[in-house]
Simulated scan of single mutants.
Amino acid sequence: MKIVARTAAVVFVLGLTGCILMWMTGRFDPFITVDEKQVIDGSSVQAIEVEADSFDVSVIPGDGNDIEMHLYGEYIDRKFKDKFEITASASGNRLKIKAESTKKWAFLTMGRTSPEIIVKVPEKLYDEVRVLMTSGNVGIEDLQAGQLAVQSTSGNTKISGFSGNRLEFQGTSGNVSIQEAEGELAVTLTSGNVKISNSALSKNAAVKTTSGNINLYAEEFPSSLQLDLRTESGNVSAKVPNLVYQEKEENRIVGQVGQGGPLLKLQATSGNVKIAQQ
């Protein structure tokens, strides 16, 4: 029995080595490409919810009135279609898009990249857009909505070109980048860095992290502004023109420019907090 087992092991190793060599030399490619699309009429949709499990998700503007959902991946497992599915259901003017893994235990679901869902939406003002992630990266570009809410358990998030009343983010692990976002900001993150970069600041911004740095940059600051920056373990800095300090310590800054104005409240338990012109 031992001889049979050893022989089987040697054959397996030789076969695997051969496949790897053929792959490296371009003679054999074990990956297959999955490229699926669904299109629905989005002319009456005013609220969108995207829920994803183990996917990268992008929400970007599209052409016309259609909402297009694009599932893409390059995988070894040829039963890829049986392991992932995407569904869309409408209720009134609300659309729910759900992408999930149906067989989380499958070992051979390996790919060059994570499975990706690209959602293209008509360019218009939505009442609300929600993105709920279990594991995966989030990218949102040029979106108009009264409220944008993103929840992420694990993965990086990048939001650029948001226009609306309020942007909310809640995350457990991963970095967050927000660029050129209009509206009030509310960011809560357990582990990861937060970077906010805007041409101008005109609304309140509240950012809170447990472990990670907070950096906020603006090309220009309003004539009236309130600052409340603090960290328990780290440094705080504020390079804001005409800032009058009410309190200034290594890990605490309270200050004012002019009278009133938006409040920038940035708090980190462990990490540095910085506001500066870019």
Score class of each variant (00 low, 15 high):
S114R: 11
G161C: 05
G73W: 00
N137L: 06
P122C: 05
E168C: 12
T134M: 09
V131L: 09
Y75L: 14
T134P: 03
L143A: 03
I118F: 07
Q144T: 07
K83E: 09
G139D: 11
L125F: 12
V121K: 04
E116G: 00
K104Q: 13
Y72R: 13
R78H: 09
L167W: 07
G73A: 04
P122L: 03
V119S: 02
T172R: 05
N165G: 14
I140R: 01
F162A: 07
Y75I: 14
R112C: 00
L148P: 04
H70T: 00
S101A: 12
M110K: 15
V131H: 07
L108T: 14
G171V: 01
S101P: 12
G155E: 02
G73M: 08
I117N: 09
K103Q: 13
L167I: 06
G92L: 00
M110C: 15
R94L: 00
E85R: 07
V150F: 00
V138Y: 01
T153F: 01
K81Q: 12
L125I: 10
I76C: 08
Q170D: 14
I140N: 07
A99T: 06
E168T: 13
R94Q: 09
A145T: 02
S163V: 15
G92H: 03
D77T: 08
R112Q: 14
T87H: 08
W105G: 14
T172M: 04
W105A: 13
K79D: 14
T87F: 04
M110E: 15
Q170G: 15
S135W: 04
R130T: 12
S101D: 10
R130G: 13
L108W: 15
I86V: 07
V119D: 02
G111K: 02
L108M: 15
K81P: 11
N156Q: 11
E123C: 10
R78A: 10
T113N: 13
T113E: 14
V129P: 00
T87Q: 07
N137Y: 09
K158S: 14
V129Y: 05
E168F: 08
H70M: 00
Y126W: 03
Q151D: 13
A145S: 05
Q151I: 14
Y72C: 08
M69N: 05
F107Q: 04
R166F: 11
